[in-house]
């Protein structure tokens, strides 16, 4: 087992997710299966290969510093679970 229950619980906490016992069990198993599959890649010797940061070989994709139009406020708030007409409303953190 590569991934422990504790690790699954830790990552869940970081993502603000709550899981039941069975779910933690299931995710631990599934994540291990995925990692096992990725282990296959470790069979290759890549010690001489520099790390790849991007799938494409392109570099320096820039835009110039120009202001364009922003989204209409109504559309911005369309997907908000709750809003007050100008801001997103979320549960208080502190």
């Amino acid at each position: 087992m590569k991934i422990t229950r504790e690790e699954v619980e830790h990552v869940a906490r970081l993502a603000r997710l709550k899981f039941g016992e069975e779910e933690v069990e299931m995710f631990t198993k599934q994540l291990n299966e995925i990692l096992l599959y990725m282990e296959k890649l470790n069979e290759l010797d890549t010690s001489e290969v520099p790390p790849t940061f991007h799938a494409m070989e392109k570099e320096n994709a820039f835009r110039s510093d120009e202001v364009g139009s922003s989204l209409e406020l109504k559309k911005v708030l369309d997907n908000a679970p709750e809003d007050n007409g100008e801001s997103f409303v979320v549960p208080k953190i502190f």
């Binding site: 801001s87 997103f88 549960p91």
Partner: peptide, 15 residues
């Protein structure tokens, strides 16, 4: 930016 409501347990988010 988060603005916390004085009375209600909510915050307002301005992106």
């Amino acid at each position: 930016k988060l603005v916390h409501d004085e009375l209600k347990p909510v915050s307002y988010v301005d992106f």
